[in-house]
Every structure is written in C-alpha cells, then in structure tokens.
Design a binder for these strands. Structure first.
Lengths: 183, 183
DNA sequence: CATCTCATGTAACTGGTTACATGATTCG
DNA sequence: CGAATCATGTAACCAGTTACATGAGATG
C-alpha cells in the first residue's frame, strides 16, 4: 500500500525519496508512515514496474538527488486503486495497550508514572502535528487554488489525527484516575 | 511482540493456538491481532526457545489439540518485558485514510456513500465489541476473584477500544457533513 | 444441504525493520 | 564544535499475509 502513497504524492509533483519521507512525516504520519529505507526500496520496485521514472540531478556540495516522477501507467494504477471501494484494513499495533493488558502484577505508582510520561509525550506530539500539519496544508492550498478539493481531503484526514490524539490524552487521564482509585 | 501477547495469555492458563486466536479476537483485537497461521508459527518459535511447552490431547470426532503452557523461562521473559518502560510504538495503517487523502478526483456522492457504508460497519463493530468483550471480562473476573487487578487492566484497554470506535463514528459523521457542504 | 466451528499446519511471498556505509554543509 | 539536515542505498533479518490442504460434527 506504501506504493499507492508514493504514487499519490508523486502525482502532485516530482520529488526524491528523501522528500517523500518528509512529506509523509508531516502529513500522513498519523495513519501511514514508512522508514526511509523502505521508501527507497519501494521506489525501486515502482520504477521496475514502470509506474514511475527517475532522473539524477547533480548537485555540488550536496549528494546528488534522484528525482522521481509518475508515468501515465502510474497515474492509471493510482486511479484504479482510488476507484476500488473503501475497505477497512485498519492495522493497529499498540505495544502500550498490549503491555497494559498484561500489567496486573506491576506496581500502582510505577504504572501511573509511566502513563504520565505518555501523557506529556502525546500532548507535545498532538500540538506539534496539529499546528505544523495544518499550516502545511493551508500554505499549499493557498498557493495552489487548483488544489482546493485536495485540501478538503487532507483536512479530513488531519482532523482524524487531531481527534485521535485528543482521545488518547483523554483516555490516559481517565485511566490514571481509575488506577488511582481502584488499584 | 506477538510473542509476548501469547506468553501473556498462556500465563493465565494453558490453551491451544486456536483458543489463543479466539481470545485475541475478543479481547486485544482493538490494538493487537494476528492471523491464525501466524499464531501457530509464533507458538512454534516460542517452543523452540523453551518459553512454552506443549502436550497433545487426543480427541475423538474432533482434531487433536496441541495444548501449550508457559514454562518458568517463559514467565521470566514475560516479566522482563513487563518491566521495560512503556514506549510508544503505535503503528497505524489505515487504508481508508490513505485513500481519502488522495481522493480529490472522486465524485462527491460516491465518496459520501462509501463513508456511510463505513459508518454502519463501525457502529455494528463497536456495539459487538463493547457488549461481548465487556461481558467476557466481567464473566472471567466474577469467576476468578484473584483476577480483580487483571480485570482493571483489561477494562482500561477495552475502554480505549470503545472510545476509539466512538471517535471513528463521530469523525465519519463530521466528514460526511463537511463533504456535503464543501465539495 | 450448506455453512460454521473446531483444529492444525506449511510454502511462498510481501512488507517492513535494523544496522551499516558515506559525507559535506548548516545551524545553534 | 557537535548535532541536525540533506541524500542514497544495501544486506540481513524479522514479521505478517495469502493460499493451500484436510476433515468431522453441529447448526440452521
């Protein structure tokens, strides 16, 4: 599926694997992310399928850039994927919840302290994503009037991330309160 | 990490790979699940590490059952894992959000229709999990007074699942409303 | 009479992670 | 002056999915 994420981004504009990783980190990271190495591997596979193509841009005082762009076949593949009906393949793997599930024998105060650490981490993360991601979307939309419709989509997914973080923070507060009373 | 999930379950009571899959489906599925085939593969690996051991129970008119139980080494490994600090390794891969992100060129009515399908699916799922999972937790806790503390943990994670589904449903409603106005 | 449940497993494949290797420039 | 940024990539490994194979008994 990372393939489609990369095709989707390259459908906006040609860019490098490094750029793609950065775009993902600041936009789809809430619901889709990949390691830098995996991005390069997948780009190679996409090029082998002729869905994208690359040119090397030489740079002085910086490593050369391999700039990828989507091909007609790539646009067709992206389009075909978009036309398939939405099917929920939500994969959530939360080691925090898994550990908590089996954490009965741990000490009350240690548990609560750990949850407080998570709480502050999530508050920082939520704020960072909410501010920066939103700003990125608005900046791009303001510069490209043709992308109004895209911006509505981005905003819908960004909003999901925002309320998901809010939920996480609320759940942590609720859980800390419960543990304080019931353990 | 599936290894620790299986060790955690087997720490309660010996059971088969089939049972383990069923337990996961009705308890940790919100935040951790695995395919039946992967459960068998991981059990085999755990046995090779001597963290669990198995005996075959012969049955007539049903396939034989391979019943796994945790070893002392397994309990030690589980304990060591629980003692490590909580670190967020949340991996979310939502193909729905990914597709939506790139869905600008799709038809307004088609998009909304798809979101409505998701809405009814999530409402059914939320209700199913909320009722059945809760009942399972309460039934086990009622039968085993020694598991009160475990039940508090299970309830905390179950609650996460419940409010996560509520969030998803609310987000779908919000997004449908936005699309109706803005597309 | 068909589908679901119980019950286990393997083979081939796909996707993803970790660790390694390189190295100049810019920013605090 | 150390860390971050820009920039690409491979090798080994680990985790997970799909498809296949088998088959009796219970349920609707």
């Amino acid at each position: 599926m990372l393939k489609y994420a990369l095709l989707g981004f390259l459908n906006y504009t040609p860019m490098t694997g490094y750029d793609l990783k950065h775009f993902m980190d600041t936009s789809t990271a809430y619901f889709w992310n990949a390691k830098q190495s995996q991005v390069y591997i997948t780009l190679k596979a996409l090029e082998a399928e002729h869905l994208i193509q690359s040119v090397i841009e030489e740079q002085q005082s910086r490593p050369d850039r391999r700039v990828y762009s989507i091909t007609d076949a790539g646009r067709a593949a992206l389009s075909a994927w978009l036309d398939e009906p939405l099917v929920e393949t939500e994969t959530v793997k939360s080691s925090v919840l898994l550990k908590l599930f089996f954490a009965a024998r741990l000490d009350k105060e240690a548990l609560i302290a750990q949850l407080r650490v998570l709480h502050s981490q999530h508050r920082r993360l939520a704020e960072m994503y909410r501010a920066e991601t939103r700003a990125t979307i608005e900046a791009i939309a303001a510069q490209n009037p043709a992308m109004q419709r895209d911006a509505v989509m981005w905003e819908a997914t960004r909003r999901f991330g925002e309320i998901h973080e809010e939920l996480y923070i609320r759940w942590l507060e609720e859980t800390i309160a419960t543990f304080e009373k019931e353990l």
